[in-house]
Amino acid sequence: MRSASGSRYTLRTMALGYLALLLVLPCSMIVYYTFKDGLGPVWEALTDPAFVSALRLTLIAVGIAVPANTIFGVMCAMALVRRPPKHGTWLINSMIGLPLALSPVVVGLALILVYGQNGWFGGWLTENGIEIIFSTPGIVLATIFVTLPFVVREVIPVLREVGTDQDEAAWTLGASRAQTFWRITLPAIRWGVAYGVVLTTARALGEYGAVAVVSGRLAGKTETLTLHVDEAYLRLDEVAAYTTSLVLALLAVLTLVAMNVFKPRTHKEVADVDRSPPGHEALR
């Protein structure tokens, strides 16, 4: 018995040690480096116009990408579960999975090839004076692309689970299609939608690679929070880089909390443990 509990402690120490070195220590360094020189520089970093503008741009991207992909996600899940098309389901499914499998840099490249100066729509856009690449719309499009799968992938299994009995009852009793959706379907899937929205928001806040390619990186203009971290680090303004990182990390922790609140409710039958990680589930 002694050797059994001995090996138990060995395994525990190894697992926790690995996590401490890889996860906990690095993340606590963000806090340490942010407040290394006291609160003054932190306040300066937070009120720097470049930071404020980066925060604004990130919020704009999140504010457009999250509602757009939520509406799309619910609609697409409804179509795929309730009225699956006879042909082409595999194509729709692989397009939904693609943004997760793709390197974010490739996403940026793809947008440049379509909307850039020499891109497919480039000529028409230039003629009409519309700027997408190196400007806010490009950043928004990149964010929409990388966050597209989360809501739809979360809602599909929940819709399958709730079935159509209640909808049919409402329909038989004379409710309109819209009434059925708002009063029956949406409340039934709301936790799945909420979980998807949390994942979408987290990914949108943190997107870096795709945005880095299409932004053009004009400080104070086309820089998001993640790009601001990078830019501040490269001009050796450590406090600004770490302060912005801390803001993003706090948002990440908030996401974790929200995930742990919503996740158990989407799958009531599995109470004890997350069935799979967010990225993982969405990848299926």
Binding site: P26, I30, A202, Y208, S245, A252, P277, P278
Partner: peptide, 24 residues
């Protein structure tokens, strides 16, 4: 708590991860 922080690499922006790993 340990179970919850396993998902941290998913929630944390990758560039922040790079920066903190560079610090350690």
């Amino acid at each position: 708590v340990v179970n919850a922080i396993i998902d941290l690499p998913f929630a944390l922006p990758t560039v922040v991860a790079g920066l903190t790993l560079l610090a350690v």
